[in-house]
Computed example of a mutant assay.
Amino acid sequence: MKTDDLIMMLSSGPDVRPAPRPLTASLLPLSAGLLACVVLMLVLLGVRSDLMQAAALPAFWLKVSFSLLLAWAGWLAAKRLAAPGARIAALPLYLGAPVAALWCIAAILLWQAGPEARTPLFWGATWRYCPLLIALLSMPLFIAALRVMRGLAPTRLRLAGAAAGFAAGATAALVYCLHCPEMSPVFVGFWYLLGMLIPTALGALIGPRVLAW
């Protein structure tokens, strides 16, 4: 080793960066949270009785795809925000593209529908409790995500908490698709999204407190 290299190594001090956690240390709590979310849905709500018939309709898969894409984007955001210095410039595009696409479809449906059909397309029959049920189902996964992130090294704590909440909310919406009778993209584009934003707001609120390290 050259003298200059030795001096540089000694002057830099010890490496105090947190050691990376094993993959299983993250997957186990998240898997348990997802399992609890599914069990909670089955116990409290149950699977819709006409699921097989609904699965034959494009509107059902549009709802599933919307929730799945937002869940993927949410977990990607949570993963990047759990580490300092990660690039997040593309995250708004990943999160916003599915919403913008579904809103365009919803706008076309509203434009084509008659005035008497537009109100049912938006309100459906379950708007009073749909967002609250999604938020409720997200709680086990939300708690697991916060636990995993706390063991990493997030620096933007409010954004990290919001990302954990959104990822959990979007995943809960995906699970909720197995129960929800609503099929209108107009309904899904507003009320499902509202259900995802409830744990997002909660995560942004408590992130600086629970994720501090």
Rank of each mutant, 00 (worst) to 15 (best):
M1N: 10
D4T: 00
D4S: 10
D5S: 14
I7C: 07
M8Y: 10
L10M: 15
S11K: 14
P14W: 04
R17Y: 01
P18G: 02
A19E: 09
L23I: 07
T24P: 03
T24K: 13
L30N: 04
L30H: 07
G33Q: 05
G33E: 04
L34P: 01
L34T: 02
A36Y: 13
A36E: 14
M41R: 02
L44E: 10
G46V: 06
G46K: 04
V47G: 13
S49H: 15
D50F: 07
D50L: 04
M52P: 10
Q53T: 12
A54W: 12
A55H: 10
A55V: 08
L57P: 00
L57K: 11
W61H: 11
W61P: 07
L62D: 03
L62N: 05
K63D: 12
S65C: 09
F66K: 02
S67T: 15
L68C: 14
L69E: 05
A71M: 15
W75D: 05
W75V: 07
L76T: 01
A77Y: 08
A77C: 13
A77R: 08
A78L: 14
K79R: 14
L81V: 09
G85I: 04
G85P: 00
A86S: 14
I88Y: 09
I88P: 00
I88R: 07
A89W: 15
P92K: 00
Y94C: 03
G96V: 00
G96P: 04
V99Y: 13
A100C: 01
A101I: 10
A107R: 03
I108S: 04
L110T: 02
L110I: 05
W111C: 09
P115W: 05
P115A: 11
E116S: 13
A117P: 00
T119M: 15
F122Y: 14
W127M: 13
W127R: 12
W127Q: 08
R128S: 15
Y129E: 13
P131G: 10
L133Y: 14
L133T: 09
I134T: 10
I134W: 06
L137K: 01
M139D: 03
F142H: 02
A145C: 14
L146Y: 02
L146M: 13
R147H: 12
R147S: 13
R147P: 01
M149W: 09
M149N: 09
G151V: 06
G151A: 12
L152E: 09
L152T: 02
A153Q: 11
P154V: 11
P154L: 11
R156W: 05
R158Y: 08
R158V: 11
A160L: 01
G161Y: 03
A162F: 06
G165L: 09
A170L: 09
A170W: 05
A170H: 03
A172G: 08
A173G: 15
L174F: 12
L174E: 07
V175Q: 09
V175N: 08
C177D: 06
C177Y: 03
P185K: 11
P185T: 13
F187D: 11
W191A: 02
W191H: 05
Y192S: 04
L193H: 04
M196W: 06
M196I: 02
L197E: 15
L197Q: 14
P199R: 07
T200P: 08
T200Y: 10
G203N: 01
A204Y: 04
G207D: 06
R209V: 15
L211T: 06
